[in-house]
């Protein structure tokens, strides 16, 4: 995935679409950001200068689906194999019914991409009707995170199979990339050098968050501002 921060207008459509697509629960008070379940969290970055040299940008942060050798930071530590990386798609998944809620993965992830169900997820009765059957709802006491809309991949693969195409060639778009009104989010196969996303990853504006930690995040950011690069990766 590549996210062009220059194009991002901070409208939050990505984050909202993600919540709607993935049955993310919400509470009456969501202002405690440290306990709010947000798969695609948007961060507020600023250049630290004074008025009128002040500048800020928004930075949407899905799960990075780290590509570090052998294991992602989180899959490495899960004691019960509840979170694993699919080596074909590269997607890091989380099996909610297997998760015992030890939160070791939350501790391991430097991107805060993982959220814990501190409460029983609850919806206003009438809003239960808008829950998607394609994504299971979670229970209290387990961890959840962005799956790059993995269910959409499965759907695309099934469709490809039925259409007689190689399922491994199936393409899809996660809800956030689809929703973005400025098309700031590009999604595709990084391993395919011809893909749009692979090209963007080599753009001179591209950078990754905390590249120095050898987590090999699969989300690239693009920004024309050096201060944003610095804030994304202090190794600059």
């Amino acid at each position: 995935m590549a996210i062009d921060l220059d194009r991002c207008t901070g409208c939050m459509a990505c984050s909202v679409a993600c919540q709607a697509e993935n049955n993310v629960s919400f509470r009456a008070d969501e202002s405690d950001k440290l306990r709010s379940i947000t798969w695609l969290e948007v961060y507020h970055l600023q250049n630290g200068k004074e008025y009128p040299d002040y500048q800020f940008t928004y930075l949407p942060r899905p799960c990075m689906h780290c590509d570090s050798p052998h294991h992602s930071p989180c899959t490495f530590v899960c004691p019960v194999n509840a979170t694993t990386r699919d080596e074909v798609s590269g997607i890091v998944n989380h099996i909610y019914p297997r998760c015992i809620g030890c939160r070791y993965c939350i501790v391991a992830c430097p991107y805060h991409a993982r959220d814990f169900n501190w409460w029983d997820p609850k919806w206003p009765k009438s809003m239960e009707s808008m829950l998607s059957p394609e994504v299971s709802t979670r229970m209290r006491g387990v961890v959840e995170k962005c799956t790059f809309c993995h269910h959409r991949l499965l759907k695309a693969r099934s469709k490809a199979y039925l259409d007689g195409i190689d399922p491994n060639e199936a393409t899809y778009v996660p809800a956030c990339a689809e929703a973005c009104p400025t098309k700031a989010i590009t999604f595709g196969n990084l391993l395919d050098p011809e893909s749009e996303v692979a090209k963007l990853s080599k753009d001179p504006r591209a950078f990754r968050i905390l590249a120095k930690l050898n987590t090999e995040p699969k989300v690239y950011y693009l920004s024309k501002h050096q201060w944003v690069h610095k804030l994304g990766d202090n190794s600059f």
Partner: peptide, 16 residues
């Protein structure tokens, strides 16, 4: 594309 209000619009339809 869609705006956040559109993406959240069903919450009006099913609003308590």
């Amino acid at each position: 594309g869609i705006c956040p209000l559109g993406a959240a619009a069903l919450q009006y339809l099913y609003a308590p």
